[in-house]
Design a protein around this nucleic acid. Sequence first.
DNA 1: TTGACACGAAACCAAAAGGTTTCATATACT
DNA 2: AGTATATGAAACCTTTTGGTTTCGTGTCAA
Lengths: 124, 124
Amino acid sequence: MSAAPKHDIFQAIADPTRRKILRLLADKKLPVTAISKHFPMSRTAVSKHLRILLESKLVSVEKSGREKLYKLQPEALLELKHWLSFFEQFWDNKISMLKHFVENEEAGNLNLIIPKSNEESKDS
Amino acid sequence: MSAAPKHDIFQAIADPTRRKILRLLADKKLPVTAISKHFPMSRTAVSKHLRILLESKLVSVEKSGREKLYKLQPEALLELKHWLSFFEQFWDNKISMLKHFVENEEAGNLNLIIPKSNEESKDS
DNA sequence: TTGACACGAAACCAAAAGGTTTCATATACT
DNA sequence: AGTATATGAAACCTTTTGGTTTCGTGTCAA
């Protein structure tokens, strides 16, 4: 036994409930009971979703007294990001190309200058 | 009728077969039979996967004689990208923050200077 | 030490997902 | 005209998924 993940990240985020859980955990660590307040289903059901998120490393858990605090582990989304980056190459917009470059250089030799925007940015 | 999607993009990419199909279509338009050559399952099964990809707008189809050519529609992945960008905010690396900025400014007031890299980038 | 709370495991169930085979239809080839 | 190719629809089957309820265990508070 060991790291055979059983649930990959793509499966993990396929379910809307699980995506919403991830959003909730972005704010702060939460125990199961608190999380399940946000859903029209039993605590046990939410618990099962959390197990899947755990298996795919999207959350971690930490015991605190009689509670178990679940915490977002956003780094796990890197795999998804990487997968996406392959396709960005095909959608023909300069910004995406820039980002693709940044992705692959991974914090290499890149200078960035962000001007202090004293002008309101008009969208479009 | 109409755009009630039934299959969202998250579900669509949850299946490994469908992800592989997307990769194949990145190279070029292909008919079902050609695609199914790459998989240990029936053409009909692949056809069903394609229907799901169609429903989520990840591919489009174009009739050509007796064939139907399936084509990648990478823009559909924007939704995924957008979803991801929310979480990048939480993963603490400067590059990701940069990309988050780029994302939200949408080609706004940003100066980028990419030096001609005469030095090999050592991955740390 | 007794009771209340927080939690996951187990057994169960209905519906959805992912396959199969068979069949009908449209197009192309000769 | 007649045969071969390309495809999707239909009916069917099995496994997985997402939910339920019930129960046992650990922890905290009196």
